[in-house]
Amino acid sequence: QSPEQTEIADRPVCDSLNLGSLQLVSTLKNPSGSCSVDVNVMWWDEAGFKDLCIVTACEYVVSLWKPADPCQWEKIHTWHFTEVPVLQIIPVPDVCNLVFVALGNLEIREIRALLCSSDDKSEKQKLLKSGNIKAVLGLSERRLVNSSRALCDQQVEVMTFAEDGGSKEKQFLMPPEETILTFAEVQGMQESLLGTTAVNNVVIWNLKTGQLLKKICIADSYQATVCHKAYSEAGLLFVILSHPCAKETESSGSPVFQLMVMNPKTTLNVGVMLYCLPPGQAGRFLEGDVKDHLAAAVLTSGTVAIWDLLLGHCTALLPPRSDQNWSFVKWSGTESHLLAGQKDGNIYIYHYS
């Protein structure tokens, strides 16, 4: 694959120092052409060699790709599903040789662990949870949190996993009254967990005791907020939110991500910074990923936009490739690689610098 340079066009807002660039380094071609839904990276140990592998998810197939020759990827395992389609891959930090996926149509109906038998290396899957699942997140220390609804009751459950993908331990967290939309870990605080809710509250739990510590109302913010990252500094809680329902304003353009700061003690909070699209770019947040100080989003226009959260502005744009809109983006675990996928199942790996 010949490297290709994709740089931001000549736009006033980004016409400054510190422009980012994206260089295509590798492609994963999907011969089946079935609809692609997600991608992620994970560690996989095959015959004693631990590699950072790529997991791709199409509607009814999940595949694991191992690095082969330079810039080439070899498919080594495939799991098939017949009844319920795959919705997303659930990355769980610190886990090797275990893939977690959420299956369902519009909402999650099942969470499954995918693994290989240690005897004959054949692909296996284990059903971990079924029901009306609203939100799920992989946590550090081999844990996975999910919220589900049965009749009027909401259940928030943390599962801890054994090596074979089985659920070793279950713990319940005190649920808020309103439906949880997303979860987020607080960096460096393994015992704390955040959730965003359907009525725009941010809730904080103690994962060790299951206590619901605080409910913080961010009602002045936009609806359907997703929390991508959270960290605590100087007694304050900083969160990076995305706003799928945000509308363009004359003063600041189209906001895609927002940095908010909240005082967990008083629940007072305020927006610190809006990360907007450069002038001339249209579209709202569709899907995205935040890692360290980099945020990437697929916009409704089909373009991928990247922000440096420290610089505070958009640093790169990746327009639709071969007339096909982008469907999803993920940062890889190392060296600022961006995985961008299209509906036809092809995944493109870019190096961001």
Binding site: N206, Q211, L212, L213, A234, N263, P264, T266, N269
Partner: peptide, 23 residues
């Protein structure tokens, strides 16, 4: 905005909220 707009801050907010919250 200034930090003062957010009210009194505690570096041990997590421990303090855990001791105040319902078990």
């Amino acid at each position: 905005c200034s930090k003062a707009d957010l009210g009194p801050v505690s570096l041990n907010w997590f421990e303090e909220l855990s001791s105040e919250a319902a078990p």
